[in-house]
């Protein structure tokens, strides 16, 4: 990972965290992980995944695990979906975001019930819908910004 790439991802994470303040309960950084998966850079994806896990789990109020599960679901969905779709196909991203929205609801509910926490399910459902709606534009913006700033050299 070269220096400019590192700076780009650092800026992405900082910007994403600031934007997440505006949308409580929504993960905007997942778009970066998706872009990194599409670039098929394992080393970059590994480090990004690690940092995002720490950020999201650190700011959360649930015990560690639900973000790990969720990002795990993203990786599984991505690898399974790549057999059927082009990785950068918008339909693929939309389907992926629907799956991730559903997983967000299920995993958060499951982890909360395992910890015997009462969480408002109607709000969780709304946030999951929002999450599914937010991923495609966030992915497009990230993808676009990355191409503009880094060129096509980053793609493998």
């Amino acid at each position: 990972m070269n220096f400019s790439n590192l700076v780009w991802w650092a800026c992405f994470i900082v910007g994403g965290v600031w934007l997440q303040q505006l949308l409580p309960g929504i993960d905007l950084l997942v778009a970066g992980l998706l872009v990194s998966l599409q670039e098929r850079r394992l080393y970059q994806t590994f480090w990004l995944l690690l940092v995002l896990l720490l950020v999201q789990e650190g700011t959360g109020t649930l015990a560690f695990g639900s973000t790990a599960l969720w990002y795990g679901a993203l990786i599984v969905f991505f690898n399974v979906g790549r057999w059927l779709f082009e990785a950068e196909n918008l339909v693929f991203v939309v389907l992926l975001s629907l799956g991730l929205g559903a997983c967000h609801f299920l995993f958060t509910l499951m982890m909360a019930s395992l910890q015997q926490l009462d969480i408002p399910q109607d709000r969780l459902f709304l946030e999951s819908v929002w999450q599914a709606c937010v991923i495609p534009p966030a992915w497009w913006l990230t993808h676009f910004a990355r191409r503009r700033c880094m060129g096509d050299a980053h793609s493998v």
């Binding site: 997440q20 973000t67 999450q131």
Partner: peptide, 14 residues
């Protein structure tokens, strides 16, 4: 910040 991130399931502030 107030509730931040997908894991902020509880009513919370930072």
């Amino acid at each position: 910040a107030n509730r931040l991130g997908p894991q902020a399931a509880l009513e919370s502030a930072i």
